[in-house]
Design a binder for these strands. Structure first.
Lengths: 194, 194
DNA sequence: CAAAATACCTACCAGGTGGTAAGCTGTCAA
DNA sequence: TTGACAGCTTACCACCTGGTAGGTATTTTG
């Protein structure tokens, strides 16, 4: 039970960073929500940047694990790919937060991490690209560049997931559910008909 | 020449908000970059929120204009759609900023504008959906829900554009250019083969 | 020409920011 | 028993935040 506070800080930080972004979140807010003083937080994570880095690292780990799960469930590249994007589309709250964080990082990192500072998503992207590459050896995804192919699906899916809260406000529930079904149908079409 | 300062403030704010987000940008920074005092800025835009709203409004206008340009160039829905996403992919700096702003707003608006507060992108989205709907009357895009279809293309494209700076750092120039060509090829495939 | 509006300015404010310094308390090994 | 360390605490810091008050030139208008 030693890790409790540190873990609570980390998960609370994940929630707040994904909701409000790096600048929109203060370490005060994070600490207060765990009923710890700000300096209690700074004891575990010596700076805000370090805290954010830890959050990103955990998020990246989450995605890599997701790919491993999916690989364990099926050996077929098409099935794997479709399972991945289905699971990303119908994500639980935690996964949703990871996806949002990922998107924020894409927008922010250009300046905050200008230097080489490895992109935290690289391992995940490489894993997914590897699925496509191996699929091509079985005759799937013909004529596609693996990276561009993955990126297309990733983009469409992540954008949809991030938009969902907004779409919820703009359309009725039935429209939204239909939209989701059709989004998945499009993924299916692209993945299985190529 | 009356509008000069106000316009300069607006365009500078657009740059900074798109780079650093709402919370990451201070009205001080904006004002300083135009060599005006913070209160000079607050004279033209009575609060930070108002400034941000003005930036979003201008960005929305930019996109609606883009659609109008494209409609003027061709009457064919497929051509229009492809032209739109091509132009978004190969955007100049200003358009790029608009796309980034749009993405940020998608991530942030959920909380800052919780209330009905019309989504600033709605007119653009409606315009593009209308293109698809009209295309369906000529036998294109069969079996597709216009909204889901548009959203898919929009997502893939915007995500790619936003990622480009990161991709630039991860891959060589040739790889990146190839990726862009292939992204456009995928759009082409989806738009013209449906 | 007077009045009013425009386009700024300096000075100031309360409150929040990330972060440091130093201290207190309990656990646990030597 | 002592000393080291983890896990906190309060007190404090310099700086930055958005925003107000009030003033001053300049321009526009009646």
């Amino acid at each position: 039970m030693k890790l409790k506070t540190k873990d609570k800080l980390l998960s609370t930080a994940t929630v707040l960073f994904s909701k409000n972004g790096f600048y929109g979140t203060s370490i005060n807010d994070v600490a207060a929500q765990v009923s710890v003083s700000k300096q209690g937080l700074l004891h575990h994570f010596p700076s805000k940047e370090k805290l954010y880095a830890a959050v990103l690292a955990q998020a990246a780990h989450h995605l890599v694990e997701l790919v491993q799960e999916i690989k364990a469930e099926s050996d077929d590249a098409q099935v794997q790919l479709f399972a991945l994007f289905s699971k990303m589309t119908c994500a639980d709250e935690e996964r949703l937060r990871v996806i949002i964080l990922l998107m924020r990082e894409l927008l922010d990192n250009r300046e905050r991490a200008e230097q080489a500072h490895k992109w935290f998503l690289r391992p995940f992207l490489d894993d997914v690209v590897a699925i496509v590459t191996s699929g091509q050896q079985h005759g799937y995804f013909k004529g596609q560049s693996p990276l561009a192919f993955v990126y297309h699906l990733l983009g469409a899916t992540q954008y949809y997931v991030v938009s969902r809260p907004t779409l919820d406000k703009l359309y009725t529930r039935e429209e939204r559910e239909q939209h989701e079904q059709q989004h998945i149908a499009m993924l299916k079409g692209i993945i299985f008909d190529t």
